[in-house]
Simulated scan of single mutants.
Amino acid sequence: MSQKVNLNAYFERIGFAGSIAPTLATLETIHGLHPVAIPFENLDPLMGRPVQLDQASLEQKMLHKGRGGYCFEHNTLLMNELRELDYSVRGHAARMLWGHGEGGASMISHMVLVVDISGSSYLCDVGCSVFTLTAPLKLRDGVEQQVGDNLFRLSKVDDLWRLDVKLGEDWRGIYQFEPVEQSEGDIAAINSLVEKEYYSRALLFAARVDKEVQYALSGNRLSIYRAGQDPERRYAEDVAGLRTMLADVFRITLPTGEDFEPALQRVLTAAPARATVD
C-alpha cells in the first residue's frame, strides 16, 4: 500500500502476539484487543483541531502519544493494519440510529469495515462509542450473534444493512450502512463534515471497554455498563472533573495546549441544554 504501516508499533499498542495469518481467528484476536487498548475520543474536533487520517498521523497520535480517536481514525487505522496483513477490507459510511429514532441521524457520521475471509464477510467496527464491538460480526441477514454480554443482529433492509442490539425484550437500532465501498476521498469528505459538527455543537464523546465493563461519556455524563445491572451514572461538574474522567476512566493522555480546557468548558456549558439518550 502507499502508506507505510508499522505493524510492530500497532501490535505493541494493543498487546497482540501470535499468528499473523489472515484468518478469522487472527481477526477476532485483533478486533478484541484494539478497543480495550485504544479508547474512543473526539477531543481533537472538539478543540477545532483537524483530524488527520493519513497513516503517519494516526500512528503518531494513537500508537505513540497515548491518545484515542473517533470512528474515522479507529477504523481507518484498523483497515490499514488489516490490509498490511493481506486481508480484503472495505470501508463503508454509516448513519447512526441510536438516539435518533427510526429515521436515523440527519447526516452520515460513522464509518465501518467489511472484511472478506474464505467466502464470508464480517462487519468490523472498533470505533463506535455506542455498544463497542469487541469481535467481528458475520454479515448474515437476521442471525443473532452474541458478543460479550450483548446480543446483536444484522438485518438487510432494502439496500441497507442495519445493526441492532437487544435490550431486555426489545431490539434497538445502532446504525445502518450501504454495501457500497467508500473511497479514501469519500471518507475524508465525511470526516470533514463530522469534525465541524462536533466542534460547532460542543459534542464530547469517549468510550472504553474493560473486561466485563463498558464506559461511555456523553457531554459531562459518564455511563458505566455492567452485565445484568442498570447503568451507573456519574456527572462531571467542572473542567477538573472532566479532565479526571478522561484521564482516569478512559486512560487518555490528555492533549496539551491552551485550547483544551476552554473546549471542555464549552461542553459543560452546552450539557444542561442538550437532551441526552440512555
Rank of each mutant, 00 (worst) to 15 (best):
L137W: 03
T134Q: 08
M107D: 09
C128S: 15
T134S: 13
H110L: 02
C128M: 11
D170S: 10
M111S: 04
G103A: 12
G119E: 00
G101Q: 12
S120G: 14
G173A: 05
K196D: 07
L133V: 14
K156I: 04
I174F: 04
T134A: 06
T132I: 10
V147A: 05
V194N: 08
H110D: 03
R153Y: 04
I187V: 11
M111N: 07
S121L: 05
S183E: 11
R162F: 14
D186A: 03
C128D: 06
R140A: 11
S121K: 10
S106Q: 11
E144I: 03
G168N: 06
S118K: 03
L160A: 10
V115Y: 01
S129G: 15
S118G: 10
V157H: 15
L137F: 12
A135Q: 11
I187R: 08
G173I: 03
A135Y: 08
F152V: 00
N150Q: 13
V180Y: 07
A105I: 01
E195N: 00
D164T: 00
P179T: 09
R140L: 08
S109G: 13
A105S: 07
K156E: 15
V112T: 01
R162G: 05
E181D: 14
E169S: 14
G173T: 10
A188C: 04
G103E: 14
S192P: 02
S106L: 15
R153I: 14
V115A: 12
P179G: 14
L154V: 12
A189M: 00
G101F: 09
L163A: 06
R162T: 15
G104T: 15
R172H: 11
G142T: 10
G101A: 11
G101T: 12
E144M: 09
L113H: 04
